Amino acid sequence: MTTTDSLATHVTVTAGSFMTDVVEASAHVPVLVDFWAPWCGPCKQLMPILDRLAAEYGGRFKLAKVNTDEQQQLAQQLGIRSLPTVVLFKDRTTVDHFVGILPEAQIRELLDKHLPTVSDGPLAQVQRLKAAGDYAGAQEAIGHLLARDPENVGLRTEAAELHVLDGDVDAAKQILTQLQAKEPNHSLVKRLAALITFSDVIARHPDVRSLREQLAANPADLELQHAMAVHQLLAGDVEPPLQTWLEMMRSHRQFQDDLARRSLILAFELIGDADPIVPQTRRAMARLLF
């Protein structure tokens, strides 16, 4: 029997459902199968990356997971010898695979080589409207998708992010509260929580030009430093804010209940572990902590 995790971006597959949920399903949409085990550390590192990609690709592929401890016979039949092993099925056959952990960029390359173009994905219209700044139109489009798949965590977090972009942070917080009640440890839910926390900072300091002027007049003001770091992070300039918060940890650890350390942890959720700057900054944090 197939089990779909509540609010998850994947389907859990057993020996009994493999032919239906993987082989036959791949005739309609590519299926990426993650063979893992609870004791496998690299498997746990890879999982949130695959979950995030499944949500981001918006239906262009289906993510399936096989717990090899529970499905040992299936793993043996398929020749799975190392974990994690990830296999891509398309048109009822295997077309690609990798063993171990790959950088996220390489996983994207593998997927993009075999998947339908982005213009074919159900989230394509949402992304186009979002890029054009038509947040109301994007919300309407994603509403139609949610009507067909109301428990999809990727769609729900995307809807919440659109609320943030449209200035309705309260609506985003309502969605976040619902998601946290069901699956607080999901990587996309954690990412949304980080975005909303930082959006509250932006709401207190919305004018970046004025913020720069205030910082020029008061360069030692830690609250202004923090606000500027948040603006930089959300604008995609990730290295300066990480360095700001590391320096705040060194010199003002007690400021606002260890705000710098907490901000770094939230930033990691937004950036993602696949970016090499995250493990590099984690090591710098560890040296300051210990």
Rank of each mutant, 00 (worst) to 15 (best):
D237T: 05
R253Y: 14
M248S: 01
H252P: 03
Q243A: 15
F268P: 00
I265R: 07
E239R: 15
W245Q: 04
I271C: 05
V238S: 02
L233T: 05
F255E: 06
W245G: 09
V230A: 02
D257S: 09
P240M: 12
E247W: 15
Q232S: 11
L270I: 15
Q256C: 00
L266W: 12
A235E: 06
D237C: 00
V230Q: 01
V238A: 08
M248P: 01
L270T: 10
E247N: 13
R261S: 06
P240K: 09
V230F: 03
D273Q: 13
Q232C: 10
V230D: 03
D257Q: 10
L259C: 01
A274M: 08
L264H: 02
L246G: 05
L264C: 01
T244I: 08
L266C: 07
L246F: 06
A260H: 08
R262C: 01
Q232Y: 10
H252I: 12
H252Q: 13
D273I: 14
R253T: 13
L246W: 07
L233K: 02
P241E: 10
L264A: 01
A267V: 06
L266S: 14
L246A: 09
D275G: 02
Q243L: 14
R261K: 09
L234I: 04
Q243V: 14
M249G: 00
G236W: 04
F268R: 01
L259A: 05
L234C: 02
L266H: 13
I265M: 14
R261P: 00
M248E: 01
W245P: 02
D273W: 00
V238I: 15
S251Q: 14
V238P: 07
H252A: 14
T244H: 12
H231C: 07
A267T: 01
L234D: 01
E239Q: 15
G236M: 09
D273F: 10
Q232G: 10
R261W: 03
E247C: 00
G272R: 11
W245V: 06
D273Y: 08
L259N: 00
F268A: 06
M249Q: 10
D273P: 03
H231V: 11
W245R: 03
D275K: 09
W245N: 04
S263A: 15
V230M: 06
R250W: 10
L233H: 03
G236Y: 05
D257C: 02
I271D: 03
R261I: 02
M248R: 02
T244S: 07
M248F: 03
D237A: 03
L264K: 02
V238N: 08
A260M: 09
E247A: 14
A267C: 08
Q256E: 13
G272F: 10
E269T: 06
V230T: 04
A274L: 05
